[in-house]
Design a protein around this nucleic acid. Structure first.
Length: 668
RNA sequence: GCCGACGUGGCGCAGCUGGUAGCGCAGGCGACUUGUAAUCGUCAGGUCGUGGGUUCGAGUCCCACCGUCGGCUCCA
């Protein structure tokens, strides 16, 4: 008696009746059997111990696949919960899912206890004991009532079971599950280890704890039950888990690399900016080098906008509260705005957005359809009272400068305008060496204002724009802001992290709130459409991203110091100054240092300062009118380069916005 | 705002179970005159985040506050 199952590669395999997924893996190969952590049978993830039936299609899930890693992480989370329950009898465990790069588990400890960092070591030690014991994960099926009885002393589990039982009364499908927690309409599933630890769970899990091991507990954190700050705060433990120690090591190495690139650290090292406590949290000051980088970003942005049909405007930083009542900001975001200031009987607020001001520019006189689309642009600094816990260097501040534009257009111009905008975004960001984008179209949220039909139209216009640009995108259902759908553009940096930068929003509300109009060709008044958009997002955040993307080694056109001239000996200093003078005349930002230390030490300092082009001049150069050129990223310096050639190379690389080195000698 | 951790000269750190602060880098000065990632010497610099408390005595212990970091929530 045999059964036949279909494999992903299209072949079939015969097995003895009663064979499990693990048997199948073993029959295919030793390596596969060792790497197997779960299986997919007819599209459903199951344990390896699942018996197979004739005619099923089966795929083995290996530990190094994305799905396999999730299984490992999920199983490791169970072991974490088991260890915590061993060490804190009476602890309640809530949920413990796999996440990107790892897992977490949420607990509440008896007596309102908290985990401290020292506890991680004890917990991890207990986890390693559980792994060493190689306890099997055994699946159990229970009725809803049985599940409630089983977890009678676990209030969070009871809440999960009740929640599903109530919201999805016994239907045929049984597929309505709660957050992968093992509750379906018909019953609950759980996994038990020999030690008596049992957890509500959909599975699948690895066959036994011995399959785990390449994990590390990372940190403790507070986390609200069900993500709701009105509910109790639980104690969360984060961990990371991988298929091998090597993969774990690589992950830890990536974390170290991210730390090395931290813009807050580099910002201090390169003397770019800091956050004086005397000024207040989230309020940066830019030092000369940082302000120079800002200036370069901003002036480039203004120049590109002017060349692309935008008009510059300038608006003040505060306004009467009545303006923000009209715009609706006080209604929706009052708690995130700075509190009111009373002056001469009126109430003023710092502006949290530029749009109301730009609208007043539009509304300053009657507008004709001939003026549309009207694109107003401002590097506008806005103030938002971000909660203290969310501040994060330049990436999240309380005073930020948006490269903000508001475009007023006729409804029939919207599509073309959006398509043009997306290509403008790509061109602008491309100038910074950024090319790896992904868009997200955020649709109507539960809480919204306006007409559903208009929401649909605006949303589809955004989708058309992103499709026309050929940019990959995903839909973010319900993630739009209350007044508008939006198109967010994310990019991936040099180490694969996602940053949200540009955002385009089709505003359905403000033109109406402010009663905006234009006179059409038909001599009738119409309401314009309005698009909000920022390309950098905020100048501060964009700088943070650039610094981390480039690990401080900004592209030559953005480097505060583009070239440094070093004299080999004191009596070469005059020639060094002459060379610097010639570079400066060619609009290169150059400095020159004294020969007060061995050359190697001065080279090292220039490299640490991330100077893209280090120039060394000595006897040979004075004789020949040349320089020694040490480009950042080059494997070796080049001797005897004529100064004119160098000036031309620098001008070319600066003009091209390339990263390191002159065109034709691409370095990195 | 909530949970946890951390605050020692500009930066990075040491300072054990309490006995009146130390190192490296950076900085000043002097010497060295250097051909591609750290020359040597010397000097100066800290009321140990702030305010209370315990103690004969607090950088070390306790409390409060401020700030930073990691998360949660939030992000127009």
């Amino acid at each position: 008696m045999t059964i036949t199952v279909a494999l992903p590669d299209g072949t079939e395999r015969s097995l003895a009746a009663g064979a499990t997924a693990a048997d199948l893996a073993a029959s295919i190969g030793k390596r596969l059997a060792a790497d197997a952590v779960a299986a997919v049978v007819d599209g459903r993830e199951v344990d390896l111990s699942t018996p197979l039936a004739d005619g099923q299609s089966v795929a083995i899930v290996t530990r190094q696949s994305p799905e396999g890693r999730d299984v490992l992480r999920h199983s490791t989370a169970h072991v974490l919960a088991q260890a915590v329950c061993d060490l804190w009898p009476g602890a309640h465990y809530a949920i413990g899912p796999p996440i990107a790069d790892g897992f977490y588990y949420d607990f509440s400890l008896p007596g309102d206890g908290h985990f401290s960092d020292e506890d991680l070591g004890r917990i991890e030690a207990r986890m390693r004991e559980i792994v060493a014991e190689d306890q099997p994960f055994v699946r159990e099926e229970h009725s809803i009532e049985g599940g409630l009885a089983l977890f009678a002393d676990q209030p969070y589990k009871v809440e999960i079971i009740r929640g599903v039982a109530e919201s999805a009364p016994a239907t045929e499908s049984g597929e309505v599950a709660d957050a992968a927690e093992g509750v379906a309409a018909g019953g609950v599933s759980a996994y038990r280890n020999t030690a008596g630890f049992v957890d509500l769970c959909r599975g699948p899990h690895v066959p036994s704890t011995g399959r785990l091991g390449s994990f590390k507990l990372m940190r403790v954190a507070g986390a609200y039950w069900r993500g709701d700050e009105k509910r109790p705060q639980l104690q969360r433990i984060y961990g990371t888990a991988w298929e091998s120690d090597a993969a774990l090591g690589e992950h830890l190495h990536r974390l170290a690399e991210a730390e090395r690139r931290d813009h807050r650290k580099i910002g201090a090292e390169l003397d770019l900016f800091h956050f004086p406590p005397e000024i207040g949290g989230g309020l940066p000051v830019f030092h000369p080098n940082g302000a120079l980088v800002r200036h370069l970003l901003e002036s480039y942005s203004e120049q590109e906008h002017l060349a692309s049909g935008y008009q510059l405007v300038w608006t003040p930083h505060l306004a009467k509260s009545t303006l923000f009542e009209t715009s609706g900001h006080l209604g929706w975001y009052a708690e995130a705005m700075y509190p009111p200031m009373e002056m001469e009987g009126a109430t003023y607020h710092l502006k949290p957005m530029n749009c109301p001001m730009h609208i007043l520019v539009y509304a300053s006189r009657a507008r004709s359809y001939r003026e549309l689309p009207m694109r107003l642009f401002e590097l506008g600094t806005v103030y938002r009272f971000e909660r203290s816990g969310v501040l994060h260097g330049l990436a999240r501040v309380r005073a930020l400068t948006q490269d903000d534009s508001h475009i007023f257009c006729a409804p029939e111009q919207l599509r073309d305008e959006l398509v043009g905008l997306v290509s403008f975004v790509l061109r602008m960001l491309g100038a910074f060496g950024l090319t790896d984008f992904e868009a997200e179209v955020a649709t109507r949220p539960d809480k919204f204002v306006g007409d559903e039909q208009e929401w649909e139209e605006a949303t589809s216009a955004l989708v058309e724009a992103v499709e026309a640009a050929g940019m990959p995108y995903v839909m973010a259902v319900g993630e739009g802001s209350f007044y508008a759908p939006k198109l967010d553009i994310h990019l991936r940096d040099a180490i694969g992290r996602r940053w949200q930068v540009s955002t385009l929003q089709v505003d359905l509300q403000l033109p109406q709130r402010f009663g905006l109009e234009y006179v059409g060709a038909d001599n009738v008044r119409h309401r314009p459409y309005m698009v909000h958009r920022a390309l950098f997002g905020s100048v501060e955040r964009f700088m943070a991203m650039l610094i981390e993307h480039y690990a401080g080694a900004l592209p030559v056109w953005l480097a505060p110091v583009q070239a440094r001239v070093l004299a080999v000996r004191g009596d070469h200093e005059q020639y060094a100054a002459d060379v610097a003078q010639r570079l400066a005349a060619g609009s290169v930002r150059v400095d020159v240092g004294p020969a007060d230390e061995p050359l190697g030490a001065r080279i090292r300092r220039a490299k640490l300062d991330k100077v893209p082009c280090v120039l060394v001049v000595g006897d040979d150069d004075i004789a020949a009118g040349t320089v020694g050129v040490n480009w950042r990223g080059a494997s070796r310096p080049e001797r005897g380069v004529p100064v004119d050639t160098l000036v031309a190379d620098l001008a070319a690389v600066i003009g091209s916005h390339l990263g390191d080195g002159p065109p034709g000698k691409v370095l990195g």
